[in-house]
Computed example of a mutant assay.
Amino acid sequence: MKEQFNRALGNLVDKLIGWFNTIIESIPNLVLAILVMVTTYFAAKYISRLVGKLIDKKVEQASIKSAISRVSSVVVVALGLFVALGVLNLGKALTSLLAGAGVVGLAIGLALQGTLANTFAGLILSFRKKIQIGHWVETTGYSGEVMDINLKDFTLKESDNNIVIIPNKTILDNPLKNYSLTTRMRIFLECGVGYESDLEKVEQLTKQVIADTFDQVKSPDDVEFYYTEFGGSSINYLCRFWIDAESMLAKLRAKTTAIIEIKKAYDKEGINIPFPIRTLQFDNKLDVKAPDFKEVYSNN
């Protein structure tokens, strides 16, 4: 019994001595690994600030800039951790860590598929020069001013001051019309005049009114005017001209001004803008004193 105890005690002492020797031998590697992690920490902070400065002029959204800076710092720290584990000769631990990270990443990706899609879509939208905060856009049936682009959604403010929040993935997958990319818009104006009107006079007067109302229209020749059809109560036409505008509100204001000035000019010149009228005409000349009428009336 005593011999077994002494043998076990000896094995324990040998094991502790072996561990102690391993620790002594690993001190240089441990110190080096600590230096790597400390250096990585300061390098991550520096790279985060540097990335923030680089994207500051390209991305206006603070949330996007903060997210990109954090991602860059996390990448640097992860690289430093892998190097430190390699210095400590923990290759198996490094392999297990990578395998575990892959499994966890796959699980998280499947669970947050929609969220991650919106996140990456938000990053892509933030770097698109053709979509910026303050632009007036139209997409997925909504039209308004871009108020915010973050990692989750795309925010619009419509002309009636309502806020519309659209997922980033939806914006990326659907067509988007940006009115702010061009400084000019074409106004389409449809109207009709009475059949008794002098059509040539109507055309000349309409063109002249548009040219006198808008500074962007240099002469009546810059206004397009086309008669389109013989309507039920009027001869209809289409008038088109260009204005300087970057939003739908400016376009609507210009169209409103054009309608008011054209109506004033037509009233002054006696040009009629008809509206549908139903006329009831009785041509049967029915005589209430006729014998047939009295007989039918009495039977009813």
Rank of each mutant, 00 (worst) to 15 (best):
K92C: 00
D222W: 01
K58F: 12
V59C: 06
G141H: 07
N6L: 14
Q208E: 15
T182V: 06
N299C: 00
K157Y: 06
K268E: 15
G102S: 12
G192T: 05
M37F: 11
G141V: 09
K15N: 07
L32R: 08
T183I: 01
G134Q: 05
S234L: 02
E190I: 07
L90C: 04
D153N: 14
T40S: 15
I273Q: 12
D221S: 12
M248I: 10
E229K: 10
G192K: 06
G194P: 01
E60M: 09
A44H: 05
E60I: 03
E3N: 12
S219H: 01
Y227L: 00
G105M: 09
S143M: 14
E158N: 13
E25K: 03
F42E: 07
E269C: 09
V202K: 00
D267T: 05
I273S: 08
F225L: 09
E190S: 13
V104D: 03
T22I: 02
G105C: 06
I271M: 11
L97H: 04
S247A: 01
A78D: 03
N150V: 08
I64N: 08
M147V: 15
F154N: 05
L85S: 08
K177Y: 08
L106I: 10
R49D: 13
F127E: 08
R128P: 03
K251I: 02
E200A: 04
E138N: 08
L90A: 14
R186T: 15
K130R: 14
V77L: 14
E190N: 13
A111F: 14
A33V: 05
Q208C: 00
L112F: 15
I27G: 00
P274M: 10
L88Q: 02
Q281A: 07
E203H: 00
D222H: 01
N29E: 13
A121R: 04
P276M: 13
F225I: 06
G194M: 04
E25F: 05
L9Y: 01
T256V: 01
I124R: 14
T182N: 10
K65T: 12
L54D: 02
V223I: 09
Y226K: 13
R128D: 15
Y237Q: 00
I124L: 12
M37H: 02
L9K: 04
E60D: 13
S66M: 12
D267L: 11
L90I: 03
L123W: 13
N284T: 12
E261K: 13
T40A: 15
K130M: 12
A101Y: 07
E200C: 00
I27S: 01
F127Y: 10
L176P: 05
K264R: 13
M147S: 05
G122L: 08
A121M: 11
K169C: 01
S126P: 11
T115M: 11
L172M: 14
V209Q: 02
T206V: 08
K251D: 01
E25Y: 08
D153S: 14
L151H: 04
K289M: 10
V87R: 02
L30M: 15
K218G: 01
S96W: 15
L79W: 07
I131R: 00
T256L: 06
E190H: 09
A62E: 14
K268M: 09
D222Y: 05
F241E: 08
F42W: 11
I271G: 08
D212F: 02
F282M: 05
G80T: 07
N11F: 10
